[in-house]
């Protein structure tokens, strides 16, 4: 039995309904452990004080915001190549979540930046890139909403997603060229000497895993909704034909 069998809506519905409670519980567990650990059981930073703790929301949401687009790119390609409806609907389901995460990343960034840099907003490359990413999400969602025919919408948004990805990367480097910013470098990376201290890193990793689980749960939930909406449409269409 191949992996693609799950692309059948019926099979996907059965599997996801079994998996969803587990994912929900796991998300709640990991996220609350990570956040409580981070908020209450880590020391304050010697320069930044307690404000540093916003990192436990800021970094994971930014991580999801970028990777949600990546996931949409993959599912769009799968739709274009293999024509699996679930794939297209998963991309559609992920977009608003990605947009929400982008907004959370920007807002927590502003809240964090105010005491640290003394400003709510700075035309810094990272911030600006995220703003542009938000615009890409908006355009993508708007195109989905504007087109009536489901397959046409799936095709066109997939094309947009692919072209958009190229331009998103291009914008990122253009913005870097445009302004070197005051945002600190990556907080976590696997190959760097100087990361955030382990005391902060462990709860941060927990939070990131929690956010990933949250993302998966939400995407499953929303994809189920989209499939149900399609099913309603198909039923109405059948009624009309009979």
């Amino acid at each position: 039995m191949s992996f693609w069998e799950y692309a059948n809506p019926k099979r996907f519905m059965a599997l996801s309904s079994a998996a969803l409670p587990w994912f929900t519980a796991l998300t709640a567990l990991v996220l609350s452990v990570g956040l409580i650990w981070g908020f209450f059981f880590t020391p304050d930073d010697f320069r930044q004080g307690s404000t540093v703790k916003i990192i436990y929301i800021h970094v994971p949401s930014a991580f999801i915001a970028i990777n949600a687009w990546l996931m949409m790119l993959v599912t769009s390609l799968v739709w274009l190549v293999r024509r699996h409806h679930v794939s297209a609907l998963a991309a559609r389901a992920a977009a608003p979540i990605g947009l929400a995460m982008t907004c959370i990343g920007l807002i927590t960034g502003a809240v964090w930046g105010q005491p640290m840099w003394g400003t709510w907003w700075e035309w810094d490359p990272r911030l600006t890139s995220f703003l542009i990413l938000g615009l890409f999400y908006l355009g993508y969602i708007a195109l989905w909403e504007a087109i009536d025919d489901a397959d046409t919408a799936a095709d066109l948004t997939s094309v947009l997603c692919i072209v958009g990805s190229v331009f998103a990367v291009l914008s990122r480097y253009a913005i870097l060229f445009w302004n070197q910013g005051l945002h600190q470098g990556a907080s976590l990376s696997l190959d760097k000497e100087e990361n955030v201290h382990d005391v902060f890193a462990y709860p941060l990793w927990t939070c990131i895993i929690g956010f990933v689980l949250l993302f998966i749960t939400l995407v499953l939930l929303r994809t189920r909704t989209e499939i149900r909406a399609r099913r309603v449409k198909a039923l109405i269409a059948r009624e009309r034909m009979a």
Binding site: H85, R230, R231, A234, L235, R238
Partner: peptide
Amino acid sequence: MAQGDFDEAFL
């Protein structure tokens, strides 16, 4: 009935 794989997949 004879719709092939169309939106049938969702029924």
